[in-house]
Design a protein around this nucleic acid. Structure first.
Lengths: 215, 215
DNA sequence: ATCTGAACTGATAGCAGCATCAGTCTTGGC
DNA sequence: GCCAAGACTGATGCTGCTATCAGTTCAGAT
């Protein structure tokens, strides 16, 4: 009978021990993500976090050394999910300009469908723009491709990435004070394409193309 | 004899009581600004803050209800100073495009000359982009002037301001990981002018003009 | 010169959160 | 079925912070 259960195991973890451990860890991370999105703070007590995750208080220390470790993991987890969402939708697009335009507009849509990820991106995303994980490297690659093909015009790709990322988070910031409609996303996409060197009419056309749905 | 001293009083405060109170308050704010710039955190104990400000522990409660009140005041204070610095230098410039270009490049210079303000702007500036105090209203006014005169091309000034502000803070973020030279400021200014609708050659010219010194 | 009120001070009591650890439960091997 | 290893649990002691408050100092008024 236990063997039957074993056959239903996901391929992720060899045995039930590891799976239980991973589930507990994920519960803690999910609780931290919630708190981060709701309050923007990391000052909640470990007791409260454990309670939300529905695990014992002492269990926290089986997985993380300090509260900061947990919140770091939670931010990384949320941004990784954000990156994979965008990746999935833009995977079929070849033109880097179209990729950026779609990503920006989708990010604004994400604010409605995935408020938790959006809050974390808005509140904690800035320091990760230049990080070696998440969307950062992919954005950099697309910028370099666009530059090499002559489609984009700028000097330093790192400066360009900071500008694009900062503007995107600025848009989320604005969206948190007054709810923006989809048209604001088109405007932002158009402005960013112009910033990257595209002619105004072409930027407008790309920024107003039909947008694929999120999963 | 006391009258003689009174004649030397600054115009800011009527009497010595108020001046003493204001000095104590400023000492607390300065301490909070230091801590914010050094650690990026607001978790320092009130005891440590009071010690840095060289005031008694209990004095804190004569001026602020909670630690957050103090840090809010400290951020406001730093950003106000930042705004006045830029205002002073760009006061004589008429063209809004030139004002933005100069402000962006000067902000990067500020990172070297005023690291404390820069850190606070980088870490806490984002939520203030859309606030009713600081540089926000001035940036919005310049954007609207530029739009009305046909120099800038965009739809919603609020979206444009979020883009400009976010990109600027993104640049500071990059600058905190690897020290940028003045040329990076010119690049960013040029990109932002293109984003606002200026032709590429004109954006380049304005972004590379000689830059006045900070006081 | 004395008085009055406001600001400053730091010792103290109370509280909240942290980290530990001895015991319990779960899983896998034999 | 039984045992060993690892994960989970929450009561407990402890540390450090907060907010208070009674006493002191300072500045201006009479």
């Amino acid at each position: 009978m236990p063997n039957q259960l074993d056959t239903t195991d996901g391929p992720a973890s060899a045995n039930r021990f590891e799976r239980r451990r991973a589930r507990t860890r994920q519960a803690l991370i999910a609780a931290a993500r919630q708190i981060l999105a709701e309050t923007g703070e990391t000052s909640a007590s470990i007791q409260e976090i454990a309670e939300r995750a529905d695990v014992g208080f002492g269990t926290f220390y089986n997985h993380f050394e300090t509260k900061n470790d947990l919140f770091d993991a939670a931010v990384g987890d949320a941004l990784e999910e954000y990156g994979q969402l965008l990746d999935g939708v833009t995977a079929g697009i070849d033109d880097p300009a179209a990729v950026f335009a779609a990503s920006i507009r989708l990010t604004l849509r994400l604010a409605a469908s995935h408020p938790e990820i959006t809050q974390i991106l808005r509140l904690r995303g800035l320091p990760h723009i230049n990080a070696a994980t998440g969307l950062g490297p992919r954005a950099l690659r697309d910028l370099e491709i666009g530059k090499a093909s002559g489609r984009f015009t700028f000097e330093d790709p790192l400066v360009a990435r900071s500008a694009v990322g900062g503007a995107l988070i600025g848009l989320l910031q604005l969206n948190s004070t007054r709810d923006l409609d989809a048209e604001a996303g088109e405007q932002m996409a158009e402005m960013i394409l112009r910033m990257l060197g595209l002619p105004a009419d072409e930027a407008h056309e790309i920024a107003t193309r039909p947008l694929p749905d999120l999963p």
